[in-house]
Design a protein around this nucleic acid. Structure first.
Length: 755
DNA sequence: GGGGGCTATGGGGGG
DNA sequence: CATAGCCCCC
């Protein structure tokens, strides 16, 4: 039995096995890209379970829902049942889960609302307005990020105002009152029964730190074994929470952190590599394992990654290597414009699919900013290639969805002023801006929630009727929700709020789309109420309430919900691609001011982070890596001309396909007649269109001087000469770069064309 | 005071 | 290219 149970250990290399089997004491795993990190993490948990450790005592923290999901899935595969009782999830979701049972100890309702970035910004905007500050100077988004980073560094409003560095910085930026906004913002959130994303961590810290009723000991006892994935992405606050859980008198200190300093790409939200150094300092007897063998990529890709990362000064010494065969070299595609870049990428995808038999799901197009996706969408549509975009505007960010959800939020939490403001006059019911402003003012002046104001205070006759109707509408929702599940309530809300009728009356194509979105939201809620997978998690088994649903979606991003098993090309930002791998990867928009971003050019540290981002991007590729850039593109509403990215020059030339680096100034768009009219201007040049399905390579002896031949990529050509090494010189009239090519017949596939 | 249409402005990455 | 702010009419 024992041998069967532990057989997975044979699937690991020596270092991996040590990392998996060293369960006691602090462990640090430095894991290069493609080094089997996920495997180590999951097998380690499986090994814990097989060693008799109670799954409920294991806390496994990741950064993304996707990573959490994959981890759970894979543990289950290796360890079977019991795996679902492991506390595996993102920092934010697991802490939210804990806070849902503990928040009352901190002065929050247990079904607190989670504010997303938009809610937060809107609260801050309101504060700026009431303080009579210039919103051009106090930009809500920037104030928000100051507050966010203060929270991430455990700096309270009071500490903020006492911190000379922070205050000097604010004075320099002519925003000396940020500390006051911060103070008011914290008070407002508390008053609204709301936590923002940072609060999910900060309040968790407070809970452990203030230790009401000995909750700290309770969680220290519970989480005997802690694992942290992507440790390089943790911020100070997260590390302090981890220490609270694992670093105290008498602690078994069973903490295992897994990370790669070279892949640290989240410093903008407070992540700091210092945590790795600090960890070694705090946990002095830490055992360190370095996973340096890359099982993912060919040597050209691995070498290129090493080339690039050498340009960063600060790093933990390691050398990633692979024993994989060479494979094709890295290809670079230069285009005149972003449109051409899109076309060339689509072209290359078709070629790769034909030549190497790749499925759509083997292919990913990565970019620095989500805004770049449009150009690739259009190009892929032209070839009828199936694609899926991750990130960008998430489903839950759409207006109609947020509106319905705002009604749900207000139903659950009457103090949620942000939700109230959103729906009090939507659909239009005659409560205009000035009335709403009045309500806000009364609420502020009397320390009440807006709901309290409208439900308890008499209004002028003009607004009274419509406000009264709104109040009774929400009261009906609350009533209904008390005896119905989340799905039924949501259905009731959609119907009686008037939103559905509004779109039905509109009757436009756009309104139809919005209705569809609402329907799929409702489907999602139904799925949530009927999903029995959650039942396995004891603590939340019966909780199908609306507030539980709201909590689960507020932490979800678009990238997390799987849309079936369709075979689609992946389009996503490089950030979103971390942890994933594809046979063929296109890293696009490699231009100065874009990748690296124009906002990161001012300091070497920021450039280094962009470089790590590039490192992450190229190491996603298993076999085919294509790097693309355009000489010109529309940026901020005008045509911009950017140089190629410095990162391209950092890859040594022996890893790059020499032909691909030849300039292609003369190239023309390579598309045929448009299939979808309207979206595209007609292509200028005829493409080398070869019907791949009917392509049959001819035997070599048929290839002779003067023979007309067909080539999958280059189209029709005429053989000019064949030399004794069986290298043919062929003139391809449709070729986009050099028309005369030397083709090695032994490898090339050519079909003769009979006259 | 509320509603609708127009112009001006701003735009990274994500839980 | 989407949203906020502004102006004008009811």
């Amino acid at each position: 039995m024992r041998e069967v149970a532990f057989s997975y250990l044979k699937e690991l290399n020596d270092i991996q096995r040590l990392a998996v089997t060293t369960l006691d004491g602090p462990v640090m795993v430095i894991a290069g890209p493609g080094s089997g990190k996920t495997r180590v993490l999951t097998y380690r948990i499986a090994h814990m379970l097989n060693s008799g450790i109670n799954p409920g005592n294991i806390l496994a923290l990741t950064f993304t829902n996707k990573a959490a999901k994959e981890m759970k899935h894979r543990i289950e595969h290796v360890a079977g049942q019991g795996a679902n009782r492991v506390w595996a999830g993102t920092f934010h979701s697991l802490f939210a889960r804990i806070l849902r049972t503990e928040a009352h100890r901190l002065g929050f309702p247990n079904d607190f609302t989670i504010y997303d970035t938009d809610d937060t910004k809107s609260v801050i905007e309101e504060i700026i307005k009431t303080m009579n500050l210039d919103k051009k100077v106090y930009v809500a988004g920037q104030v928000r990020s100051r507050i966010s980073s203060a929270k991430s560094n455990l700096i309270t409003p009071k500490a903020y105002s006492a911190n000379e560095d922070l205050m000097a910085m604010d004075r320099m930026n002519r925003r000396p009152l940020i500390y006051q906004i911060y103070e008011k913002y914290v008070a407002k959130c508390q008053k609204s029964g709301a936590m923002d994303f940072d609060d999910l961590l900060l309040q968790m810290f407070k809970l452990l730190y203030q230790n009401p009723d000995g909750v700290r000991e309770k969680y220290q006892q519970q989480f005997r074994y802690v694992m942290v994935d992507e440790f390089q992405d943790t911020n100070y606050l997260q590390y302090e929470i981890l220490k609270m859980l694992c670093y105290y008198e008498g602690s078994p200190r069973n903490i295992c952190i897994v990370g790669d300093d070279a892949q640290s790409i989240y410093s903008f939200r407070g992540a700091t590599i210092e945590n790795i150094l600090q960890f070694e300092h705090d946990f002095k007897d830490v055992k360190t394992f370095k996973l340096e063998q890359n099982y993912r990529s060919t040597s050209y890709i691995v070498n290129a990654a090493n080339d690039v990362i050498k340009f960063n000064s600060k790093q933990i010494q390691k050398k990633i290597w692979t024993d994989k065969a060479d494979g094709p070299k890295i290809k670079i595609i230069k285009s005149m414009s972003e449109t051409e870049e899109g076309k060339r990428v689509a072209d290359t995808i078709v070629e790769q699919k034909n030549r190497h038999n790749l499925a759509n799901k083997d292919i990913a197009i990565l970019y620095r900013t989500n805004g770049q996706s449009r150009i690739f969408e259009e190009a892929l549509r032209r070839y009828n290639l199936t694609y899926r975009i991750y990130g960008g505007l998430s489903f839950y960010q759409r207006k109609e969805i947020k509106d319905i959800i705002a009604y749900m939020r207000l139903t659950v939490n009457e103090k949620d002023d942000e939700a109230l403001k959103r729906v009090i006059n939507y659909p239009r019911r005659g409560i205009g801006d000035s009335t709403v402003d009045g309500i806000m003012q009364i609420a502020n002046d009397n320390d009440m929630s807006m709901w309290e104001v409208i439900s308890k205070i008499e209004f002028n006759p003009r607004a009274r009727k419509s406000i009264g109707e709104f109040v009774s509408l929400i009261e009906r929702f609350r009533n209904y929700s008390s005896s119905n599940d989340a799905y039924q309530t949501a259905l009731y809300i959609a119907k009686h709020s008037g939103i559905v009728d509004l779109f039905k009356a509109e009757g436009t194509l756009e309104a139809e789309g919005r209705l569809e979105n609402i329907t799929s939201l409702l489907d999602g809620i139904q799925e949530f109420t009927e999903d029995d997978e959650l039942l396995i998690n004891e603590e939340f088994s019966a909780d199908k309430s609306m507030s539980r649903f709201l909590q689960s979606i507020s932490l979800m991003t678009d990238a997390d919900d799987e849309k079936g098993e369709t075979d689609a090309i992946t389009l996503m930002s490089v950030h979103a691609a971390k942890g994933l791998e594809f046979k063929s990867v296109f890293v696009t928009g490699l231009e100065e001011n874009l990748f690296p971003s124009y906002q990161s050019l001012s300091t070497p540290e920021q450039i280094d982070e962009e470089r790590r981002l590039f490192y992450v991007a190229i190491t996603r590729a298993e076999t085919y890596l294509t790097l693309t850039f355009a000489n010109s593109r529309y940026q901020f509403g005008q045509m911009r001309f950017n140089d190629q990215s410095r990162f391209l020059e950092e890859i040594s030339s022996e890893n790059i396909d020499a032909i691909s680096s030849i300039t292609r100034e003369e190239s023309k768009p390579a598309f045929g007649e448009p299939k979808l009219l309207g979206n595209f201007k007609k292509a200028i040049a005829a493409p080398p269109k070869v019907d791949a399905a009917n392509f049959k390579p001819s035997s070599l002896d048929k290839i002779k001087k003067g023979q007309k031949v067909l080539h999958l990529k280059f189209g029709e050509g005429e053989v000019l000469a064949v030399d004794e090494r069986m290298v043919a010189t062929i003139f391809f009239s449709q070729a986009t770069d050099m028309k005369e090519k030397r083709i090695v017949l032994q490898f090339a596939k050519l079909q003769v064309i009979s006259e």
